[in-house]
Simulated scan of single mutants.
Amino acid sequence: MLGDSLSEGVGDRVDGAWRGWAPLLADGLAAEGRRTAFLNLAVSGALSGDVANRQAPRALAFRPHLASVVVGVNDTLRRTFDIELLARRLDGVLADLHEAGAVLLTACLPDAGRMLGLPPPLARPLARRQRSVNAVVHALSARYGAVHLHLADDTWTEDRALWSADRLHPGERGHRAVAEGFHRLLADRGLADGAAPAREPLQPPPTRAEALLRLATAGTGWLLRRSHDLLPQLLLLAGAELRHWADGTGPAPLDARAEDALAAALAATMGR
């Protein structure tokens, strides 16, 4: 498993450690009585560059039959966001794993601004970036025949029961839903012989106090880690949003600029 905190399992704590959807899915791949070798390389905060430069070489050495590559949200939270660079990195990782014989698992993801409920001037730039990332993921998933799970749909983003207190990561119910979704798609291809992961949580739900503590600690930690990098850039982007609304042009020029950058990114990768 390659990626960031989503694949690391953040939000689904079992016996003092993160579990998440990946081991739940792994348990349902092989028929009863058989074991599945499993390697999770995902690390919280990972960027596409981390996946390409650090995780992918280890994954290739493992020679997996299945490989999930789910990354991109952290890239959208950086002032250095570059959709063409992300597309090239992701294309390289998927191409290498595909050539090595791995069946690929990918997912499109909701944008952080929507999940955190940020005000529109702050949320729109992040949404624009995540739409571009998802478009790249969709195109590359089709190119390499990946098993693709749509996690940006309203059914996922609007069901609060799927998400942990920090609103950035799934809770146990959400991770189980991700595992079940991938299992269903793999079973349709004849690639999952075991039982589907249970959808209902087995761990007791966090108390209100525990949820508030996680929200305070995780939310504050996230803000501190991002404030020196993302916040100044995000404020500049929000200022651009407000200026366009003030002069009557609205988001159209910014949307067009993002579409042009996306088109260039897709041309650079899909045209090779």
Results as ranks from 00 to 15, higher is better:
53 N>R: 14
113 G>H: 15
46 A>R: 03
24 L>S: 03
96 D>N: 09
86 L>I: 01
104 L>I: 02
27 D>M: 06
21 W>L: 01
11 G>D: 06
118 L>R: 08
79 R>D: 00
12 D>I: 04
93 V>Y: 12
13 R>G: 00
45 G>V: 00
77 L>W: 07
34 R>C: 04
145 G>T: 07
141 S>Q: 14
115 M>I: 02
68 S>I: 01
111 D>N: 12
106 T>V: 04
81 F>Y: 12
76 T>F: 02
36 T>E: 09
27 D>C: 10
103 V>C: 05
75 D>G: 00
104 L>H: 10
90 L>G: 03
138 H>F: 09
31 A>Q: 01
52 A>C: 05
55 Q>E: 12
14 V>N: 01
75 D>C: 03
122 L>I: 01
48 S>G: 15
87 A>E: 08
42 A>Q: 01
77 L>R: 01
131 R>A: 13
46 A>Q: 03
14 V>T: 13
72 G>Q: 05
126 L>Y: 12
22 A>K: 06
62 F>Q: 01
11 G>W: 08
110 P>D: 13
62 F>M: 00
98 H>M: 00
76 T>Y: 11
130 Q>K: 03
17 A>W: 08
35 R>F: 11
75 D>W: 05
143 R>C: 12
104 L>A: 04
98 H>A: 13
88 R>L: 13
97 L>I: 13
139 A>I: 04
95 A>N: 12
28 G>Y: 11
84 E>M: 07
51 V>T: 09
26 A>I: 06
82 D>V: 01
60 L>S: 10
119 P>Q: 03
84 E>Q: 13
114 R>E: 15
30 A>K: 02
65 H>T: 11
40 N>D: 14
70 V>W: 15
53 N>G: 05
101 G>F: 15
120 P>T: 09
124 R>E: 14
36 T>K: 02
119 P>W: 14
102 A>Y: 15
45 G>E: 11
95 A>M: 04
126 L>H: 01
94 L>C: 02
113 G>Y: 12
133 V>T: 00
86 L>H: 14
62 F>E: 03
83 I>S: 03
88 R>V: 13
83 I>A: 09
69 V>N: 07
121 P>A: 00
84 E>C: 09
